[in-house]
Computed example of a mutant assay.
Amino acid sequence: MANKKNNDGNQEEPRRSEEPTIRDKRRVDPETGDVRDPAAHDGAASDGAAGVDASASAPAAGAADSTSADASLSDDDKALLDQAATDLVAEMRSDMLRAQAELVNFRTRVERDRAANREAVIAEVIRSLLPALDDLALAEAHGDLVEGAPMTIVAQKLRASFDKYGLKPVGAKGEPFDPAFHEAVVQLPNPEVKVNTIADVIAAGYVLGDRLVRPAKVAVFVPAD
C-alpha cells in the first residue's frame, strides 16, 4: 500500500486499525489439547463470592449489635422503661376518660338548654293567649257557656291544648298565700285566720312545669291585730 504525502512532502505513516481484544476462556487449549489452569477464573469468582458473603454477613452483624445493646441494659433500666410505658398508658387512658366525661356533660347541657328554650317559647305563646282564656272563664262563671254551644266547644279545645303542654292553674280560694305564685291585690283583716289566706281569686295564675307563666291575682285574708 503506497504511503500518501502530506503538504510538506513528508510521507505519512499508515494508520493502524484498532482490533478488538479477544480473551480465550476455554478450559482446553485448542492447540495442545491440555487442560488450562482455572486459578485465574476461580480467583475472580472467589472475589465475587467474598463480596456477597461480606454483604450477607452485615445484617447478622447488625442484629448481633442490637442484641448486645439490649443485653447491656441493666435490670433497673428495664424496670424504669417498663414503668415509663405504664405511666404513659395510664395518662392516655385518663385523658380519654376525661374527654368522654366532658362530651357527656356537653350533650347534657345542650339537651337541658334546648328543653329550657322550648319551654320558654311555649310559655311566651301561652302568656299571649291568657287574656282569651280569662274571658272564657268569666263567660263560664256568668253562665254564658252552655253545653253544646259553639263557644263552649272552642273553650274546651283551647283548654285541652293548654293541658297538652302541661299548663296548670295556681291559686284557689282558702289556700295559704304564697308570694312566689300569688299576687295580693287586696288585703282583708280577718280575726279567724292565723296565716295569710286567699280570700278570693281575681285572676287565675298558671304554671308550665316549674316555670311560672303568670301569678294569680288574689284577695288575701290577713290575721287581725
Rank of each mutant, 00 (worst) to 15 (best):
M1D: 07
M1C: 02
N6A: 03
N6H: 02
N6L: 00
N7I: 11
D8S: 11
N10A: 08
P14M: 09
S17M: 11
I22K: 15
I22F: 10
I22N: 14
R23P: 04
R23M: 12
K25W: 13
R26F: 01
R26P: 01
R26T: 08
R27Q: 11
D34R: 14
R36F: 09
D37Y: 04
A40S: 14
D42M: 12
A44G: 15
S46G: 13
D47K: 15
G48A: 15
V52P: 06
A56L: 05
G62W: 12
T67Q: 13
D70K: 11
D70M: 12
A71W: 07
A71R: 13
S72L: 14
L73Y: 09
D76M: 01
A79F: 13
L80G: 12
D82G: 13
A85F: 03
T86Q: 10
V89H: 04
V89I: 04
A90C: 05
E91N: 10
R93F: 05
D95C: 04
Q100V: 08
A101Y: 04
R107W: 11
V110E: 13
V110N: 11
V110Q: 13
A116I: 02
N117W: 04
R118W: 00
R118D: 02
E119G: 01
A123C: 04
L129S: 09
P131C: 06
L133W: 04
D134N: 03
A139P: 03
H142N: 15
H142Q: 14
E147R: 09
I153W: 08
V154S: 07
K157R: 08
K157E: 11
F162N: 09
D163P: 06
D163H: 11
K164R: 14
G166R: 09
G166F: 09
L167V: 15
K168T: 14
P169I: 10
V170M: 04
G171C: 06
A172T: 13
G174T: 00
E175I: 03
P179N: 08
F181Q: 07
V186S: 08
L188S: 13
P191S: 03
E192H: 05
E192L: 05
K194Y: 00
V195M: 08
V195I: 12
T197W: 03
T197K: 01
I198M: 01
I198K: 01
A203P: 03
L212G: 02
L212A: 04
L212K: 00
V213I: 13
R214D: 07
A216L: 08
K217D: 01
A219E: 06
A219F: 02
V220T: 01
F221E: 01
F221A: 00
V222T: 04
A224K: 01
